[in-house]
Design a protein around this nucleic acid. Structure first.
Lengths: 239, 239
DNA sequence: AAGTGGTCTAGACCACGTG
DNA sequence: ACGTGGTCTAGACCACTTT
């Protein structure tokens, strides 16, 4: 095993991936235990875990806390400029969506949001915290801040469904301009806990500021995604 | 150190970050050696490296191969829908850009690109491979594929500058529609080597397909970024 | 030559998930 | 109760960078 000059853990990574493909492990199927792999590859758990970490970073496998390692499902294709909603987006791609509302409140506008939203200091805003899953795997935590003036009574609705569908159908609101911000960021603290992953797991952060057709602040949201769960596509035209 | 129930490496992470802030370590400044940190925190290098790995995942520090750990510079804000070019984009944000052309050729269109580009099988295309840096830190590897029919002789120009500026100024070409795809992906193999990072380092993959104003294929590129080097912003309007 | 991070060993105990 | 991954120890040698 140690004859070439590539590190053992990269050799293990490649052989393990070959093994996975040969045995045709499919989405969400479980890998052998780390100790078994260590015995099979005649090395220690530390090195095995380094190899597993590589495959994890590449998005090929993921871990479920103290349960084991599993094959990563294919990425969801996600167009943040559209409003087809999570449920439709996921089902259209042949996957099973799930949404849980973890909390929803009418809160005072946080300081950092007053400037962004243009809402007056001390005024109120709807806050909805949701966790969403694909094929029973939690993939994203979403913080929504919605202008209550545009949609009074929103929180009495079922927020496990698409908020944008509610806004469109019950309140006749349609999004206009959107400012989107995306960057890789590790999941830590509350977000890591909510998704059941370890602190430091790779993630993708996305935030959207949405105004309605007349330029009034409508919604602001922050989404914390597992790094391997999605592919973002956007279509733009030159300004 | 071990009295609470949070793991040691997370405690070390937090204390180390506090120490960094107290000592006001700035962009690209070096941290103490791992062995020193291990002694100071009265633990082993393994645990120290776990703590450093957390800060790395969070984008706060980065490693330079066998040289040490350094403070991450702030992220570049990058709008892929614009064409201000890397050089301008970076300098406008008070940073120092650098570009190296690693190779440039007229090649046969790869199979996977024929369908995307609409170019005939067996026809030719310009290929440019570049590596770019911010404040002397390599942050992205870029593969460009450009339609030679639109810009004959392009490769005789200096490709260390903005290709889009060349296209605009010398060939009078302006981008029209753009299809962009973005997702987190570990850097491995050639890309990791080119950026001088370890295989499995967190990265962001971005590809763009650009047509000109009349809908003709103009350019396709694949960019492999360090995960902590950029923040993508896009502005879209509802369709 | 000395110092650095990169890799690897051979264990150990713990917390948690599953039966 | 048992098996799992999560954490941690106390070393070792190597490859590379810097002095």
């Amino acid at each position: 095993m140690q004859r070439s000059d590539t590190p053992v853990y990269l050799q293990v990574r490649d052989q393990l991936w070959q093994w996975i493909q040969k045995n045709q492990l499919g989405s969400q199927e479980r890998l052998p235990a780390e100790r078994e792999l260590a015995k099979h590859f005649n090395t220690t758990r530390v090195t095995i875990r380094q190899a597993l970490g590589q495959l994890e970073a590449e998005g090929r496998i993921f871990r479920s806390n103290r349960r084991g390692w599993y094959i990563t499902p294919r990425r969801l294709t996600y167009d943040p400029s559209l409003d087809i909603g999570f449920y439709n987006n996921v089902t259209e791609q042949g996957l099973t969506p799930g949404t849980e509302t973890l909390s929803k409140f009418l809160i005072e506008v946080p300081d950092w949001l007053t400037e962004i939203s243009g809402l007056a200091e001390g005024s109120s805003i709807y806050y909805v915290l949701r966790r969403r899953s694909i094929d029973h795997r939690c993939v994203v935590v979403e913080h929504n801040y919605i202008n209550p003036k545009s949609c009074p009574g929103l929180l009495d609705q079922d927020t496990d469904l698409s908020i944008w569908q509610l806004l469109r159908e019950k309140y006749n609101l349609v999004p206009g301009q959107r400012n989107i911000e995306i960057f890789p960021q590790a999941l830590t603290g509350d977000e890591a806990d909510a998704l059941g992953v370890n602190s430091g797991s790779a993630g993708l952060y996305m935030q959207r500021l949405t105004l309605d057709k007349s330029g009034v602040f409508l919604e602001y949201d922050r989404e914390y995604w597992l790094h391997d769960a999605l592919k973002v596509i956007v279509q733009v035209n030159e300004k």
